[in-house]
Design a protein around this nucleic acid. Structure first.
Length: 191
DNA sequence: TGCCTGATGTTCT
DNA sequence: GAACATCAGGCAC
């Protein structure tokens, strides 16, 4: 499957896109090194959903969510953390997939150094992986076809490998089953 | 292991 | 001025 095919899939329903992103690889250039990680946990958010930033309509902050799919939506939260999303759906429809956890594939030392942590604690949370991969507001709206941060689609995971649950860490629409993760992967966040 | 809480700034009401 | 898609450290058990 090539790039355009994958991104056309990202135009599908947000929950389908969230599942499709599991197993995909993010390629980040840090300090001249190409660091690759695999997405192992995602959550879907769209404008029909009270927990989504796009629920209340387009604002300066959420503008990127309403843009074309395949771009990065980065937001700042709790006064000290960044979280990153892949924009999905048709242009004009406010939807994105939160990346909650990734598994390092190579250059893990670079990530450990940036996090000052060991093991799964390096990337097993949405703010943790942003710190590890040096993702901040400068990458808000970034096109994921381009360096220094690229999304590389992989063969879709079989549904038997994907676990579906309610989302965590939110106060609205808690019961919507739009959290997806790779079965038996140790990098998936707790709860 | 599990609960509690402080840190901290942007966004929106 | 409150809410917040979080994390890490501290303490009790």
């Amino acid at each position: 499957m090539d790039y355009a095919d994958c991104f056309s899939e990202l135009s599908d329903k947000v929950d389908a896109a969230a599942k499709r992103l599991l197993g995909a690889v993010l390629e980040r250039k840090i300090d001249g090194k190409i660091v690759r990680v695999k997405i192992v946990e995602t959550e879907a958010y769209d404008q029909t959903d009270a927990a989504s930033h796009s629920y209340k309509g387009r604002t300066q902050r959420t503008n990127v969510m309403f843009g074309p799919s395949g771009h990065l939506y980065v937001y700042f939260t709790y006064g000290m953390h960044y979280c990153c999303n892949v924009v999905v759906g048709e242009e004009g429809y406010g939807a994105a997939v939160l990346i909650r956890a990734v598994e390092p594939l190579d250059h893990e030392d670079v990530l450990k150094k940036r996090r000052d942590r060991q093991g799964v604690d390096v990337t097993n949370g949405p703010a943790k992986l942003c710190q590890a991969l040096e993702i901040d507001k400068r990458l808000n709206g970034h096109d994921l076809c381009k360096s220094p941060l690229k999304l590389l689609p992989q063969t879709p995971l079989p549904s038997s490998e994907i676990v579906t649950t309610a989302r965590i860490g939110i106060s609205q629409a808690k019961d919507v089953p739009w959290r997806f993760y790779v079965k038996n992967n140790r990098y998936v966040s707790k709860k």
